[in-house]
């Protein structure tokens, strides 16, 4: 294998593996977000257990 093909293979592997992983995370995030009430989607600023009340009072 030439140096050029080794370099291309290494960089290509990095880009491909990261790309597939990122795509997987994004798809799973979108799928999960569709199933979770908006007020419960962010852990820092919202109550842990949800409900309609918590949706409407999410800034308190």
């Amino acid at each position: 294998m030439t140096n050029v093909s080794s370099i291309a293979l290494a960089w290509g592997a990095v880009i491909a593996v990261i790309g597939v992983y990122l795509w997987n995370v994004m798809v799973r995030t979108r799928t999960a977000a569709k199933q979770v009430p908006v007020a419960n989607q962010r852990w820092m600023s919202t109550p842990k257990s949800g409900g309609v009340d918590s949706v409407e009072g999410s800034d308190t």
Binding site: V25, A32, K34, V36, V55
Partner: peptide, 23 residues
């Protein structure tokens, strides 16, 4: 954040979560 969302799905239960989402 994905882990948090998936935890919420498990915690709330799918049916309840969908009902709230519709609300």
């Amino acid at each position: 954040r994905l882990g948090w969302l998936e935890h919420q799905v498990t915690e709330l239960g799918l049916d309840e979560a969908i009902a709230q989402r519709r609300a």
